[in-house]
């Protein structure tokens, strides 16, 4: 009986990445590099995490440190915000999974101090809108089955051991993804007495997905770039 009810809304699933068209609100804009102006210089001053930096004749954005606080979007201090911003940034272009993983990737998610929002976005990936199973991406409960360790959160001291144990338990070859600005650089929590500055301090990271939290499509881009199905960009700065 549920099956018929489930059909009533029709097909919601996006054809992403075949079509790059995105529904409004699915992936809100992010700050982008902007030619230097007075507003841009002021924006560097109001950025709480140092994600904006004056570099030559433009204001550069380090998305890995951006926590989406939107201070440089409204008011007098301003940089440009654009829809299509870079998402999946590859740290080590070599040794990425080969053809064998192009259509099947098993992911173990580990929470190392996330506020809950990034986990929710990961969960949304399995909702009918994104249905990542159609691309051969599966979240697996056991690290023994996992190809990718997807880490969220800045890595707290308490979660660190559990994280490393999970990594140890995974068979070779294995890859690590840091999802969310906290996982990328620790902001705005670490480094501190109880957190480190992101996953990169404790594990070799292959793909980072910045954002606080990165929307499902950005995380999907990260996974697809690992599978070699969308081109990934080099990490800036």
């Amino acid at each position: 009986m549920w099956t018929t009810k489930g059909l009533t809304r029709g097909i919601l699933t996006t054809s992403y990445p075949k079509s790059r068209r995105q529904a409004p609100g699915a992936r809100p804009p992010r700050p982008v590099a902007t030619p230097t102006s007075q507003a841009g210089q002021a924006a560097v001053g109001v950025c709480p995490t140092g994600a904006l930096e004056l570099r030559g004749n433009h204001v550069a954005v380090d998305l890995g440190r951006c926590i989406d606080c939107q201070r440089c979007r409204r008011g007098d201090a301003k940089v440009e915000w654009a829809d299509e911003s870079q998402v999946a940034l590859r740290l080590s272009p070599a040794d990425l999974p080969g053809k064998a993983f192009r259509h099947s990737l098993h992911v173990r998610v580990v929470d190392a101090g996330d506020g809950g929002e990034t986990l929710r976005e990961l969960k949304q990936l399995t909702s009918p809108y994104y249905a990542v199973h159609r691309l051969g991406i599966f979240f697996t409960p056991t690290p023994r089955d996992a190809d990718v360790l997807l880490v969220v959160g800045p890595v707290t001291q308490g979660a660190r051991r559990a994280l490393l144990d999970t990594y140890e338990a995974m068979p070779e070859p294995k890859w690590v993804m840091a999802v969310g600005s906290a996982a990328v650089s620790g902001v705005p929590f670490g480094p501190s007495f109880t957190t480190v500055a992101g996953v990169g301090e404790v594990l070799p990271v292959d793909v980072v997905v910045p954002g606080d939290p990165p929307p499902p499509l950005a995380i999907l881009d990260g996974l697809l770039s690992l599978m070699g199905r969308v081109p990934a960009e080099e990490m800036l700065s």
């Binding site: 998610v109 580990v110 929470d111 190392a112 101090g113 996330d114 809950g116 986990l119 990961l122 969960k123 979240f139 697996t140 409960p141 308490g158 979660a159 559990a162 994280l163 144990d165 999970t166």
Partner: peptide
Amino acid sequence: IYSGISET
């Protein structure tokens, strides 16, 4: 660390 996508 347990189950699919869960908090630690």
